[in-house]
Amino acid sequence: MTSCHIAEEHIQKVAIFGGTHGNELTGVFLVKHWLENGAEIQRTGLEVKPFITNPRAVKKCTRYIDCDLNRIFDLENLGKKMSEDLPYEVRRAQEINHLFGPKDSEDSYDIIFDLHNTTSNMGCTLILEDSRNNFLIQMFHYIKTSLAPLPCYVYLIEHPSLKYATTRSIAKYPVGIEVGPQPQGVLRADILDQMRKMIKHALDFIHHFNEGKEFPPCAIEVYKIIEKVDYPRDENGEIAAIIHPNLQDQDWKPLHPGDPMFLTLDGKTIPLGGDCTVYPVFVNEAAYYEKKEAFAKTTKLTLNAKSIRCCLH
Protein backbone atom coordinates (compact mmCIF):
# COMPACT_ATOMS: atom_id res chain seq x y z
CA MET A 1 0.00 0.00 0.00
CA THR A 2 1.25 3.48 -0.78
CA SER A 3 2.52 5.19 2.33
CA CYS A 4 0.80 8.50 2.86
CA HIS A 5 0.24 11.29 5.27
CA ILE A 6 -3.15 10.63 6.84
CA ALA A 7 -5.12 13.78 7.64
CA GLU A 8 -6.61 13.77 11.13
CA GLU A 9 -10.30 13.13 10.49
CA HIS A 10 -12.88 13.64 7.80
CA ILE A 11 -14.21 17.18 7.50
CA GLN A 12 -17.58 17.74 9.16
CA LYS A 13 -18.20 21.45 9.72
CA VAL A 14 -17.51 24.19 7.18
CA ALA A 15 -18.45 27.87 7.35
CA ILE A 16 -18.46 30.43 4.55
CA PHE A 17 -18.06 33.98 5.86
CA GLY A 18 -19.18 37.02 3.89
CA GLY A 19 -19.18 40.62 5.02
CA THR A 20 -16.16 40.48 7.31
CA HIS A 21 -15.62 43.82 5.59
CA GLY A 22 -19.05 45.28 4.92
CA ASN A 23 -18.18 47.05 1.66
CA GLU A 24 -16.66 43.99 -0.05
CA LEU A 25 -19.86 42.96 -1.71
CA THR A 26 -19.19 39.70 -3.55
CA GLY A 27 -19.02 37.65 -0.36
CA VAL A 28 -21.98 39.54 1.09
CA PHE A 29 -24.08 38.88 -2.01
CA LEU A 30 -23.14 35.20 -2.29
CA VAL A 31 -23.67 34.46 1.41
CA LYS A 32 -27.06 36.19 1.39
CA HIS A 33 -27.98 34.11 -1.67
CA TRP A 34 -26.84 30.87 -0.04
CA LEU A 35 -28.76 31.68 3.14
CA GLU A 36 -31.90 31.76 0.99
CA ASN A 37 -30.97 28.93 -1.35
CA GLY A 38 -27.96 26.88 -0.31
CA ALA A 39 -28.32 23.89 -2.63
CA GLU A 40 -25.12 24.64 -4.57
CA ILE A 41 -22.93 24.64 -1.45
CA GLN A 42 -24.31 21.47 0.12
CA ARG A 43 -22.31 18.26 -0.08
CA THR A 44 -23.33 14.84 1.28
CA GLY A 45 -22.19 14.31 4.86
CA LEU A 46 -20.95 17.88 5.23
CA GLU A 47 -22.43 20.72 7.24
CA VAL A 48 -21.88 23.98 5.35
CA LYS A 49 -22.99 27.18 7.08
CA PRO A 50 -23.03 30.54 5.23
CA PHE A 51 -22.73 33.46 7.64
CA ILE A 52 -22.65 37.27 7.54
CA THR A 53 -19.84 38.19 9.91
CA ASN A 54 -20.24 41.96 10.31
CA PRO A 55 -23.94 42.75 9.75
CA ARG A 56 -23.74 46.36 10.99
CA ALA A 57 -20.92 47.16 8.56
CA VAL A 58 -22.81 45.38 5.77
CA LYS A 59 -25.90 47.48 6.49
CA LYS A 60 -23.84 50.69 6.27
CA CYS A 61 -21.73 49.38 3.36
CA THR A 62 -18.54 50.30 5.20
CA ARG A 63 -15.42 48.26 5.98
CA TYR A 64 -16.10 48.26 9.73
CA ILE A 65 -17.89 50.17 12.48
CA ASP A 66 -15.23 50.64 15.20
CA CYS A 67 -12.21 48.56 14.15
CA ASP A 68 -11.16 45.96 11.58
CA LEU A 69 -12.90 42.67 12.40
CA ASN A 70 -10.27 40.77 10.42
CA ARG A 71 -7.40 41.77 12.73
CA ILE A 72 -8.75 41.14 16.24
CA PHE A 73 -9.13 37.37 16.60
CA ASP A 74 -6.28 37.14 19.09
CA LEU A 75 -6.62 35.67 22.57
CA GLU A 76 -6.43 39.14 24.17
CA ASN A 77 -9.51 40.47 22.37
CA LEU A 78 -11.40 37.19 22.49
CA GLY A 79 -10.79 37.01 26.24
CA LYS A 80 -11.94 40.53 27.15
CA LYS A 81 -14.85 40.81 29.54
CA MET A 82 -17.99 41.47 27.51
CA SER A 83 -19.37 44.98 27.98
CA GLU A 84 -21.10 47.70 25.97
CA ASP A 85 -17.89 49.75 26.21
CA LEU A 86 -16.03 47.31 23.96
CA PRO A 87 -15.75 48.21 20.26
CA TYR A 88 -18.56 46.63 18.26
CA GLU A 89 -16.20 44.37 16.29
CA VAL A 90 -14.56 43.04 19.47
CA ARG A 91 -17.98 42.06 20.81
CA ARG A 92 -18.84 40.56 17.44
CA ALA A 93 -15.54 38.64 17.38
CA GLN A 94 -16.43 37.07 20.72
CA GLU A 95 -19.87 36.08 19.39
CA ILE A 96 -18.30 34.54 16.26
CA ASN A 97 -15.72 32.71 18.37
CA HIS A 98 -18.55 31.29 20.48
CA LEU A 99 -20.48 30.16 17.39
CA PHE A 100 -17.61 28.74 15.32
CA GLY A 101 -14.80 28.17 17.83
CA PRO A 102 -13.57 28.40 20.41
CA LYS A 103 -10.26 29.19 18.73
CA ASP A 104 -7.57 26.53 19.24
CA SER A 105 -10.10 23.99 20.53
CA GLU A 106 -11.33 20.61 19.33
CA ASP A 107 -14.84 22.05 19.00
CA SER A 108 -13.94 24.71 16.43
CA TYR A 109 -15.17 24.47 12.85
CA ASP A 110 -12.95 22.41 10.58
CA ILE A 111 -12.77 24.96 7.76
CA ILE A 112 -13.75 28.61 7.41
CA PHE A 113 -13.73 30.23 3.99
CA ASP A 114 -13.62 34.01 4.43
CA LEU A 115 -14.69 35.88 1.28
CA HIS A 116 -13.03 39.19 0.44
CA ASN A 117 -12.64 41.65 -2.41
CA THR A 118 -9.69 43.86 -3.18
CA THR A 119 -9.45 47.01 -5.27
CA SER A 120 -6.03 45.73 -6.40
CA ASN A 121 -5.54 43.78 -9.61
CA MET A 122 -4.97 40.46 -7.85
CA GLY A 123 -7.36 38.17 -9.72
CA CYS A 124 -8.24 34.99 -7.84
CA THR A 125 -6.18 34.70 -4.67
CA LEU A 126 -6.10 32.07 -1.92
CA ILE A 127 -4.58 33.17 1.38
CA LEU A 128 -2.58 30.58 3.32
CA GLU A 129 -1.51 31.05 6.95
CA ASP A 130 0.63 27.91 7.45
CA SER A 131 3.26 26.68 4.99
CA ARG A 132 3.33 23.20 6.56
CA ASN A 133 -0.37 22.41 6.20
CA ASN A 134 -0.55 19.44 3.83
CA PHE A 135 -4.35 19.48 3.70
CA LEU A 136 -4.63 23.12 2.61
CA ILE A 137 -1.75 22.88 0.14
CA GLN A 138 -3.55 19.91 -1.43
CA MET A 139 -6.84 21.84 -1.47
CA PHE A 140 -5.21 24.90 -3.04
CA HIS A 141 -3.54 22.69 -5.66
CA TYR A 142 -6.95 21.20 -6.51
CA ILE A 143 -8.58 24.64 -6.77
CA LYS A 144 -5.75 26.04 -8.91
CA THR A 145 -5.88 23.03 -11.25
CA SER A 146 -9.67 23.19 -11.50
CA LEU A 147 -9.68 26.91 -12.32
CA ALA A 148 -7.00 26.66 -15.02
CA PRO A 149 -6.41 28.33 -17.41
CA LEU A 150 -7.74 31.11 -15.14
CA PRO A 151 -4.79 32.01 -12.88
CA CYS A 152 -5.16 31.54 -9.14
CA TYR A 153 -2.43 32.85 -6.85
CA VAL A 154 -1.52 31.77 -3.32
CA TYR A 155 -0.51 34.45 -0.82
CA LEU A 156 1.35 33.07 2.20
CA ILE A 157 1.03 35.40 5.20
CA GLU A 158 3.22 33.35 7.54
CA HIS A 159 5.63 35.86 9.11
CA PRO A 160 7.50 36.03 12.44
CA SER A 161 6.38 39.56 13.33
CA LEU A 162 3.32 40.33 11.18
CA LYS A 163 0.44 38.80 13.10
CA TYR A 164 -2.93 39.04 11.38
CA ALA A 165 -5.37 37.43 13.90
CA THR A 166 -7.90 36.86 11.12
CA THR A 167 -11.58 36.10 11.49
CA ARG A 168 -11.08 32.70 9.87
CA SER A 169 -8.21 31.77 12.22
CA ILE A 170 -10.66 30.24 14.70
CA ALA A 171 -11.02 27.25 12.32
CA LYS A 172 -8.67 24.30 12.19
CA TYR A 173 -8.13 25.09 8.50
CA PRO A 174 -8.50 28.82 7.75
CA VAL A 175 -8.88 29.83 4.09
CA GLY A 176 -8.90 33.42 2.86
CA ILE A 177 -10.40 34.02 -0.59
CA GLU A 178 -9.61 37.37 -2.19
CA VAL A 179 -10.86 38.33 -5.66
CA GLY A 180 -10.32 41.60 -7.51
CA PRO A 181 -10.15 44.17 -8.84
CA GLN A 182 -13.50 45.41 -7.61
CA PRO A 183 -14.28 48.83 -6.13
CA GLN A 184 -15.66 49.00 -2.61
CA GLY A 185 -19.45 48.98 -2.52
CA VAL A 186 -19.71 47.56 -6.05
CA LEU A 187 -20.72 44.17 -7.48
CA ARG A 188 -19.09 42.85 -10.67
CA ALA A 189 -20.49 39.75 -12.37
CA ASP A 190 -17.07 38.48 -13.49
CA ILE A 191 -15.61 38.74 -9.98
CA LEU A 192 -18.68 37.06 -8.47
CA ASP A 193 -18.43 34.19 -10.95
CA GLN A 194 -14.75 33.64 -10.11
CA MET A 195 -15.36 33.59 -6.36
CA ARG A 196 -18.32 31.26 -6.78
CA LYS A 197 -16.15 28.82 -8.75
CA MET A 198 -13.42 28.92 -6.11
CA ILE A 199 -15.93 27.91 -3.43
CA LYS A 200 -17.39 25.18 -5.67
CA HIS A 201 -13.99 23.61 -6.30
CA ALA A 202 -13.04 23.88 -2.61
CA LEU A 203 -16.22 22.09 -1.53
CA ASP A 204 -15.73 19.46 -4.25
CA PHE A 205 -12.23 18.81 -2.90
CA ILE A 206 -13.58 18.33 0.63
CA HIS A 207 -16.27 15.98 -0.69
CA HIS A 208 -13.70 13.85 -2.56
CA PHE A 209 -11.45 13.83 0.51
CA ASN A 210 -14.30 12.73 2.79
CA GLU A 211 -15.16 9.91 0.39
CA GLY A 212 -11.67 8.48 0.84
CA LYS A 213 -9.94 9.69 -2.31
CA GLU A 214 -6.18 9.77 -1.95
CA PHE A 215 -4.46 12.92 -3.20
CA PRO A 216 -0.87 12.21 -4.32
CA PRO A 217 2.07 14.44 -3.37
CA CYS A 218 1.88 17.85 -5.01
CA ALA A 219 3.62 21.21 -5.16
CA ILE A 220 2.26 24.74 -5.49
CA GLU A 221 3.86 28.10 -6.17
CA VAL A 222 3.19 30.65 -3.43
CA TYR A 223 4.06 34.28 -2.76
CA LYS A 224 5.28 34.76 0.79
CA ILE A 225 5.05 38.17 2.44
CA ILE A 226 8.37 39.84 3.22
CA GLU A 227 7.26 43.29 4.36
CA LYS A 228 4.68 46.01 3.84
CA VAL A 229 5.71 49.25 2.12
CA ASP A 230 4.28 52.64 3.09
CA TYR A 231 3.87 55.59 0.77
CA PRO A 232 6.62 58.22 0.91
CA ARG A 233 5.49 60.91 3.35
CA ASP A 234 6.34 64.54 4.12
CA GLU A 235 7.25 65.99 7.51
CA ASN A 236 3.54 66.22 8.40
CA GLY A 237 2.94 62.55 7.67
CA GLU A 238 1.01 63.29 4.48
CA ILE A 239 1.45 61.11 1.39
CA ALA A 240 4.17 62.68 -0.78
CA ALA A 241 4.16 60.26 -3.73
CA ILE A 242 1.70 57.87 -5.34
CA ILE A 243 1.99 54.45 -6.97
CA HIS A 244 3.95 54.80 -10.23
CA PRO A 245 1.95 54.03 -13.42
CA ASN A 246 4.42 51.24 -14.25
CA LEU A 247 3.58 49.51 -10.95
CA GLN A 248 -0.18 50.14 -10.95
CA ASP A 249 -2.18 46.94 -11.63
CA GLN A 250 1.02 44.87 -11.75
CA ASP A 251 0.28 42.64 -8.76
CA TRP A 252 2.21 39.32 -8.82
CA LYS A 253 4.60 40.65 -11.50
CA PRO A 254 8.34 40.88 -10.74
CA LEU A 255 9.57 44.26 -9.50
CA HIS A 256 13.31 44.57 -9.93
CA PRO A 257 15.73 46.89 -8.10
CA GLY A 258 15.68 50.22 -9.91
CA ASP A 259 12.16 49.72 -11.29
CA PRO A 260 9.75 52.64 -10.74
CA MET A 261 7.79 52.32 -7.51
CA PHE A 262 6.37 55.77 -6.64
CA LEU A 263 5.86 59.07 -8.46
CA THR A 264 5.87 62.50 -6.82
CA LEU A 265 3.62 65.33 -7.97
CA ASP A 266 6.61 67.15 -9.44
CA GLY A 267 7.37 64.13 -11.62
CA LYS A 268 10.19 62.50 -9.67
CA THR A 269 10.32 58.70 -9.86
CA ILE A 270 11.21 56.78 -6.70
CA PRO A 271 12.62 53.35 -7.66
CA LEU A 272 12.79 50.10 -5.73
CA GLY A 273 16.02 49.91 -3.76
CA GLY A 274 17.97 46.92 -2.55
CA ASP A 275 19.28 44.05 -4.63
CA CYS A 276 16.34 41.61 -4.61
CA THR A 277 13.51 41.13 -7.08
CA VAL A 278 10.16 41.13 -5.28
CA TYR A 279 6.56 40.45 -6.27
CA PRO A 280 4.16 43.19 -5.16
CA VAL A 281 0.61 42.43 -4.00
CA PHE A 282 -2.27 44.58 -2.78
CA VAL A 283 -0.88 47.38 -4.94
CA ASN A 284 -2.72 50.64 -4.14
CA GLU A 285 -5.44 48.82 -2.16
CA ALA A 286 -8.05 51.40 -1.13
CA ALA A 287 -8.61 49.91 2.34
CA TYR A 288 -4.90 50.03 3.19
CA TYR A 289 -4.39 53.78 2.95
CA GLU A 290 -5.43 54.04 6.61
CA LYS A 291 -3.02 51.22 7.44
CA LYS A 292 -0.18 53.08 5.68
CA GLU A 293 0.42 50.27 3.21
CA ALA A 294 1.05 51.07 -0.46
CA PHE A 295 1.74 47.43 -1.29
CA ALA A 296 3.29 44.31 0.19
CA LYS A 297 6.55 42.80 -1.03
CA THR A 298 6.55 39.05 -1.51
CA THR A 299 9.03 36.43 -2.56
CA LYS A 300 8.11 33.47 -4.76
CA LEU A 301 8.68 29.94 -3.51
CA THR A 302 7.38 26.39 -3.87
CA LEU A 303 5.55 24.45 -1.16
CA ASN A 304 5.28 20.68 -1.23
CA ALA A 305 2.55 18.55 0.30
CA LYS A 306 2.61 14.88 1.16
CA SER A 307 -0.06 12.53 -0.08
CA ILE A 308 -3.23 12.77 2.01
CA ARG A 309 -6.21 10.54 2.53
CA CYS A 310 -9.11 10.67 4.95
CA CYS A 311 -9.21 8.27 7.89
CA LEU A 312 -12.47 6.49 7.10
CA HIS A 313 -14.21 4.86 10.07
Rank of each mutant, 00 (worst) to 15 (best):
A7H: 13
E9A: 12
K13C: 04
V14P: 01
V14Q: 01
A15E: 00
A15S: 04
F17E: 00
G18W: 03
G22D: 08
N23G: 06
N23P: 00
E24S: 05
L25Y: 10
T26E: 02
G27M: 01
F29E: 13
W34M: 01
W34L: 02
G38L: 07
G38V: 08
E40F: 05
I41E: 02
I41N: 03
R43V: 05
R43L: 04
I52N: 00
T53S: 09
R56S: 08
V58E: 06
V58N: 05
K59Q: 08
K59V: 13
K60T: 14
C61V: 13
T62L: 09
T62F: 15
R63N: 08
I65D: 15
C67L: 08
C67G: 07
C67N: 15
D68K: 05
D68C: 06
D68V: 04
I72W: 06
I72R: 13
F73S: 09
F73V: 12
D74H: 12
D74G: 07
L75M: 10
L75Y: 09
E76G: 12
N77H: 09
N77V: 12
L78E: 15
K80T: 10
K80E: 09
K80A: 14
K81Y: 07
K81M: 09
M82F: 13
E84R: 11
E84Y: 14
D85F: 13
Y88C: 09
R92L: 12
R92F: 05
A93D: 06
Q94N: 12
E95T: 10
N97Y: 15
L99M: 13
G101R: 09
G101W: 05
G101T: 06
P102M: 10
P102R: 15
K103D: 15
D104F: 14
S108A: 13
S108Q: 10
Y109P: 07
Y109T: 10
D114A: 03
H116A: 10
N117H: 00
T118N: 09
T119S: 07
S120G: 04
S120T: 09
N121H: 11
M122S: 13
G123C: 05
T125W: 00
T125F: 09
L126F: 10
I127Q: 08
L128R: 02
L128E: 01
E129H: 07
D130W: 02
R132N: 13
F135L: 06
Q138W: 00
H141Q: 08
Y142G: 00
Y142T: 00
Y142N: 03
K144M: 10
K144P: 00
T145F: 06
T145Q: 09
S146G: 12
A148L: 10
A148T: 14
P149I: 01
L150H: 12
Y153D: 05
Y153F: 15
I157M: 15
I157Q: 12
E158K: 05
P160D: 10
Y164A: 14
T166Q: 08
T167R: 09
T167H: 10
T167L: 15
T167A: 15
I170P: 15
A171Y: 03
K172A: 07
K172F: 03
Y173L: 13
Y173A: 13
V175S: 01
G176T: 15
E178F: 10
V179L: 12
G180S: 00
Q182C: 06
L187P: 11
L187F: 04
I191C: 06
L192S: 06
D193M: 08
K197D: 12
K197W: 09
K200Y: 08
A202K: 00
A202C: 05
A202F: 01
I206Q: 00
H207K: 15
K213M: 11
E214R: 07
E214V: 08
P217N: 10
P217D: 09
E221D: 09
Y223A: 03
K224W: 03
K224E: 06
I226C: 13
E227V: 02
V229N: 01
V229K: 03
V229H: 04
D230S: 09
Y231M: 06
Y231G: 02
Y231K: 00
P232I: 04
R233D: 04
D234T: 11
E235T: 08
G237T: 04
E238F: 06
E238W: 05
I239N: 05
I239L: 10
A240D: 10
N246L: 13
Q248E: 14
Q248V: 12
Q248D: 05
D249Y: 01
Q250N: 14
D251C: 10
W252I: 04
P254Y: 02
L255N: 02
H256G: 09
P257V: 08
G258Q: 11
G258E: 11
P260W: 03
M261C: 14
T264G: 12
T264R: 08
G267T: 04
I270Q: 06
P271F: 13
D275S: 10
C276R: 12
T277E: 12
V278G: 01
V278H: 04
Y279G: 01
P280G: 03
V283M: 02
E285V: 05
E285K: 02
A286G: 14
A287S: 14
E290I: 13
E290S: 08
E290C: 08
K291S: 13
E293D: 08
A294T: 01
A294G: 06
F295Y: 05
F295M: 06
A296V: 15
K297L: 15
T298S: 11
K300R: 12
K300D: 02
L303H: 00
N304G: 07
A305T: 04
S307W: 05
R309L: 05
R309W: 07
R309Y: 06
R309A: 08
C310G: 12
C311A: 12
H313W: 13
H313C: 13
